[in-house]
Design a protein around this nucleic acid. Sequence first.
DNA 1: CATCGCCATGTAACCGTTGACATGCCCCGG
DNA 2: CCGGGGCATGTCAACGGTTACATGGCGATG
Lengths: 335, 335
Amino acid sequence: MPGRAEQRVTLRDVAKAAGVSTATVTRTLQNSPRVEPETRRRVMEQVQLLGYSPNPIARDLRYGRREAAVGLVTAGFTNLFQAGVASGAERELRHAGLQLIIGSTDDTPAREPELARAMIDRRVSALLMMPDGDHRDFLSPEHTHGTPVVLVGRPAADLAADVVMTDDDHAVQQATQHLIGLGHHRIAALTGRLDSFRATQRLGGYRSALAESGVREEPPLVVGDLTTPQQAREAVVRLLDLPSPPTAVLALNLGISTGVLIERLAGQHAFAFIGLDETDVSKGLGVSAVVRDPQEVGRQAARLAIDRIATPDRPPRTVTVPSAFVRRGTGEVGP
Amino acid sequence: MPGRAEQRVTLRDVAKAAGVSTATVTRTLQNSPRVEPETRRRVMEQVQLLGYSPNPIARDLRYGRREAAVGLVTAGFTNLFQAGVASGAERELRHAGLQLIIGSTDDTPAREPELARAMIDRRVSALLMMPDGDHRDFLSPEHTHGTPVVLVGRPAADLAADVVMTDDDHAVQQATQHLIGLGHHRIAALTGRLDSFRATQRLGGYRSALAESGVREEPPLVVGDLTTPQQAREAVVRLLDLPSPPTAVLALNLGISTGVLIERLAGQHAFAFIGLDETDVSKGLGVSAVVRDPQEVGRQAARLAIDRIATPDRPPRTVTVPSAFVRRGTGEVGP
DNA sequence: CATCGCCATGTAACCGTTGACATGCCCCGG
DNA sequence: CCGGGGCATGTCAACGGTTACATGGCGATG
């Protein structure tokens, strides 16, 4: 009767079939020396025959242990960075014998608490948070009940948690410096939600570079709250139509880089362009960009989690995965 | 002492603190009418105070149920299609109160059995498989022990499982017809691993269209086993340098579409081009393409799993998520 | 021959939760 | 005044697995 949802084979089934007690089956499976060869043979025969394998969840329960899995909560998994982090984390966890449970808020930060809660309730070994929201009470010790938390992408002053960061500010600063070095003084910076940590961090790098070189910031050249490639493209067009237009454009996230790239390829204006994050297409077309390594971010987050599981009381650590300015050519157009 | 990995609060802790039995706590939490208001108050007070919430895993164990989670095994999560499927599945499962556990083979099909096994062992409610490998013995009833399996992306003749497919063949056939209708007779088709199901399916659509229109297939125009955008780009260049070059190019997966797009934008030849799968960039640049809806594929896979969990004995179903040929302009270059 | 000890195996408790069943109290009616 | 019914609450077994401890049989030794 294929397809029938037959009850799963348990330890007791094997014990009964082999005519021994459950303890003997366990001992056999753990290669305890305290088992007679003939008994072992009989037990293993039944294990094979019935296709038994132990339920790891029941085992963890017995020990009062947390389950051998780690949760990851994020706004979504479609964007390249998020997917890369999940992928990098999954690989590292897998090598440590841990599984990865993912939960998405579907870009609704208000759902972060319930997702985190569900993970904590099922006793995951650790929780990886890539938060968008600012409210983080729900990660306080009295809510996590000792579940280790790793924050990915931004720090939390009020929370004694491990953190993985990327130093986008440095790389953006380098990128801006590069443009200034080429003679650009009117450099537009396009970014997403202005009140986000990322925008602040990245604009910070842009401004440091300007200040460092004595270039005065022109507020109209900084455009925020662009949420789609289309909006970014339109913003570029508007900027280039200004009386004194920018000669270079810095796109400060992937969606914006995409919109700017499209305008650069399909539009009529020539301008220097540096993106942030990259795709096979932008790489192949030689777009200079600030690049992050999402896989490595995920890997480091998993490592922090694994370390803390092993040593729950060590002080919190912050790991920075370097972002790099990769010069490929699109920044090279003169002012 | 924040950060200390204190033992998680259990039902018994609450019972002890409230001076009642565990049964009373359970009844209180389940709003059973059989609890005196004063007792209920005392219990709830302790629940709040201690921050108790039930362990869903222990509950499932008690009922002999499978855990409220579904596994997804795939070659990776970085590629847009895979990430989209995971995302779509996660959303649908979440709405059904199920969590998603992901496992990647890191493009090593030989790892499929162990990942599937780990999920089955932990008693997931269902298993979503996006397999690359051809060996599927490990999904036979005696190995799955009644765990429902949903195959994503390709059927399995020998397995009575639910399946989600995309009808790429139809859409590719339409795309090819479109090119033929524009007067193209020398249409190159570029694909990945020739021995893969996907390549076979998609080339099938290409060939049907040729046959239907009485266009003779020219074997040199079909190039397979291209695994990187760079290889695809080089293949296009070689084709266009042939004595009688193709006038149109059909790219049959995302990596290849990327390579061809780069050559079209950066190279010197003009040619009609239709891609498969798309990104924000290719969309923004108006690349005509055969597009699949990965989110919808994931959603349908989750739905099949949820349905089968509810009705384990219903006959297997195959759901086809339509692929579409989207005409945007790059196919329009004349022969 | 009695005793000791070793070894293979069984028994039972436990992890956290639930629910069928048991208990004991109060109130009512006979 | 006593028995029965109802209700609030407690007890206990169970889910699947592990292990400390108990048991019993055997061979060796004094």
